[in-house]
Design a protein around this nucleic acid. Structure first.
Lengths: 228, 228
DNA sequence: ACAAAAGTGTTCCTTTTACACCCATGA
DNA sequence: TCATGGGTGTAAAAGGAACACTTTTGT
């Protein structure tokens, strides 16, 4: 590796794909670009990394700057480095994704974004740059990840019903599941705590549950299977 | 996203984790650094990306430059961007990994590397920079990937015995498997073609097989499970 | 009274696991 | 002849898939 040091030739950005669950549908957070290039187009929240911060730190900072959302654990999933992906310069972007309970994170208006909004993942607008590809890979990564980790609980509020949970699975995986089998399997996994509480619904009330993080951590060590 | 364009502040490199199967053991390809910093230390083959190439192209070019190995399909697995990971400058590196049949790729000496060698993954030397962490994450990614893709066949020559195959699985996953169950499951998957050939071994000859890529592609569409 | 969602068991079949002996060959 | 690795079957257990009716409550 007799390679001399070479000065930087590309800028580095991060882009964040934030999934949220709103009104029974999975949504993604987008901002409307307020500057050139691609001004006025919808895009993933993103920005340049700075000299003294790691890429992960940049992702958190940028997300907060653009949306006001803080304290979210984001997972890096891919780096996009095609030479032509940005029209004005060589820009390499590192993609992060996260799932959040949208209801409990308020979007703060920011002068950095002209507008910020959640979009149903089945009704996405045209996106700037190669953000469509970035979004699609994030979704694919999420689908794979669902099989091996309880990441899905991040989408739900602390208290949720089994129907809520099944709903999220069905939307993200794009298929339906048998209710009885679903419930039995979750019971077997033993990672939910049943609460003495019922959500007063339109009809018969549904029992509320919460996720048992402690029990999950124990299981995780053995590497367990979350596929449904 | 009212973010002005910002000039590059970090160099970008790629690092390649190449796995090979040699004398019944999984090995990784390392080079001895021939320039500062960390001169003389073992490191993953890597180098800077250039202006007019994508990151993936850079990975292939760098690998060939340093080792003479070409035509390998490498998979990106993570980007490392801690501010202090390189002692002299801000350098962000994109990690790639691949599996190759080491016997069929000759290492060509290169003036870029003082020395190039395969190391048994259970006997790794001290590595330069944060390359130990990069290697470890590559191995972990590979272990996960084994469950969902037939990537493991890349490690083996075209013709191999079932024992060879089981051997590779056991080494990478770090556990032993029952021989009869292993063989049955592969028979069920139906992705191997039995050859009319036997490897003249030290004792009773072992039947040779080859991987049925066509059949695998058909199965892949349905998304199939390769876990053993 | 009816519409809408919650809750609940059983059967069948497939898959997984555990386990031990004989065979062919070369040294 | 013995040491080495190749090859083979079965039984028991666990897990996955398919399937329909009753309950509660608001309108």
């Amino acid at each position: 590796m007799k390679l001399q040091y070479q000065p930087p030739i590309a800028s580095i950005t991060v882009d964040c794909v934030l999934f949220g669950f709103i009104e029974g549908q999975v949504h993604v957070l987008l901002i409307k670009r307020g500057s050139e290039p691609e001004i006025g187009k919808w895009a993933l929240p993103g920005g340049f990394i700075e000299q003294k911060e790691s890429i992960t730190e940049a992702a958190s900072r940028v997300l907060e700057l653009l949306t006001g959302i803080t304290g979210v654990y984001m997972e890096q999933f891919h780096t996009f480095g095609e030479t032509e992906r940005h029209p004005l310069a060589r820009v390499v972007t590192v993609g992060y994704y996260a799932l959040i309970d949208a209801a409990h994170h308020n979007l703060k208006p920011s002068w950095h974004a002209e507008e910020t909004a959640w979009f149903d993942i089945s009704k996405m607008p045209k996106l700037a740059f190669d953000h469509k590809a970035i979004f699609q890979l994030a979704l694919k990564t999420l689908q794979k990840e669902l099989n091996i980790s309880p990441i899905i609980f991040e989408l739900l509020p602390t208290k949720f019903t089994l129907s809520d949970l099944q709903n999220v699975f069905e939307i993200i995986l794009g298929r339906t599941m048998d209710r009885r089998n679903f419930r039995r399997r979750l019971k077997t996994m033993d990672i939910l705590i049943e609460l003495d509480e019922v959500r007063p619904g339109a009809h018969v009330g549904a029992t509320l549950f919460k996720f048992d993080k402690k029990k999950y951590k124990t299981l995780q060590a053995e590497g367990f299977d979350f596929s449904l």
